[in-house]
Design a protein around this nucleic acid. Structure first.
Lengths: 169, 169
DNA sequence: CTTGGAATGTCAACAAGGCTGACATAAAAT
DNA sequence: ATTTTATGTCAGCCTTGTTGACATTCCAAG
């Protein structure tokens, strides 16, 4: 299985769908993701945090006052796992957790000044690499990049991703 | 910091380099990578393996007869960490380790029939998603996708990636 | 109003898979 | 003969995933 060429259908050139091309894409994704996380990882290590902390900081900053449950949906982990990360961030004074106003079971999450500063440092490092890559590849390549990534997400995730797009930071 | 527009330099439109665009790219990368690993993860779980096993199987299949040291360089983990994974794969009869012919200190690694079968199932699942994404986005988008990913890798990694490109599987 | 269920969040314990350090063995290189 | 290289192994640590048990809060049905 997984071989037949079938490179031309209806006259369109489908060489970009060969197994070989797909394999290159898979490996590019693997190696690029390593680069994508490398710079923040270095900063996180200095503070004794890991990627999980970065993700939490990012989305708390992103959707101001989000609840734990909201965060769980976006991050796709169990609440117990998130809770551990959240607890250390709160203890260290990077995140503030306030009891919900309308529903007192909920906790609304906010970055403190310190938390916001770390978030800025992390995302600036990541943006810097992204910016360099974007600049090197050019606007048309970037458009294609985003198209393929979006098509690669799970349907449910894509909905969340699109829902997130319009908000303010 | 991290704000100034500077969207036009020398008349070229640089709107695609705004912080907002970069943030979207970062989140797209995050969510897409989840989708990228989701299908193999399901298969791996049935067999009691993890992503680490998948990565090992992939590159052993990829570079037939590779050595342990080679694999370490590509995977970017410590030998102790790789060894744990490799040991279980060998014990379970998915990977064969033969003493090197020219240098008897080396171990050349090969997939057994069973190992090759699992590798095919994993990579076929992953290729299937990639194929769908590629098809949805079209050849031009795919070219851009690859360009940006490649620009995002660390220099050293990009060298390895390019070195890997030409070989047979 | 009370009570039972659902939603939300916390604590405890365990597993996978990273890491370092120390050490053993065999083979190659000097 | 000595040193270096390639590999394997043991022990122990950390992060970050998991499940199970439990407390609190809300809400709706009786």
């Amino acid at each position: 299985m997984a071989d037949g060429p079938s490179n031309t259908i209806g006259g369109e050139n489908l060489l970009f769908l060969t197994d070989e091309q797909l394999r290159k894409g898979i490996e590019a994704m693997f190696f690029a993701y390593r680069g994508f996380t490398a710079d923040p990882d270095r900063i996180l290590e200095e503070h004794g945090y890991g990627r999980a902390h970065h993700r939490a900081l990012h989305f708390i900053n992103r959707t101001y006052g989000t609840t734990v449950n909201n965060l769980l949906l976006v991050l796709g982990v169990t609440k117990q796992s998130l809770n551990r990360v959240l607890r250390t961030l709160i203890e260290d004074g990077l995140v503030e957790s306030r009891i919900g106003k309308t529903d007192r079971r909920e906790r609304n999450l906010y970055l403190t000044e310190t938390g916001a500063a770390l978030e800025r440092a992390l995302s600036e490092a990541q943006r810097e690499r992204m910016r360099a890559a974007y600049r090197a590849a050019g606007p048309q390549a970037v458009a294609g990049f985003r198209q393929v990534l979006e098509a690669m997400m799970d349907d449910e995730i894509r909905r969340q991703y699109n829902a997130l797009r319009e908000r303010r930071s």
